[in-house]
Amino acid sequence: MSEKIDQAQVKKVAMLSRLDLTDSEVAEFTTQLSAILEYVEKMNTLDTENVQPLAHCLPITNCFRDDVVKESLGTEKVLANAPQRDEEFFKVPKILDDNSGA
């Protein structure tokens, strides 16, 4: 059977997801993902010509909250699960070529 996804694509997706896969895992997931994609491809047999893309599976909109301050956790609780901390900060491996930011 022709595979829906090849090993190079699986490696790329793994890299994008910051997953470190062994060669045998890459092979295994390639087969599994191909089967999944093949299954999902059945959808393509439906005529969606006049169907609006679905933005959300629930038929509900406009769920807002008022702009009112709620208590935050507090620094100690926030950092409680951190593997490492540095005073009031999370401590993480040095970020090289930082392109973070919105």
Partner: peptide, 13 residues
């Protein structure tokens, strides 16, 4: 992300 404190980075959320 703050990078001033040595061989690691600090994060303030």
């Amino acid at each position: 992300n703050l990078h001033t404190a040595g061989n690691f980075s600090q994060v303030d959320l």
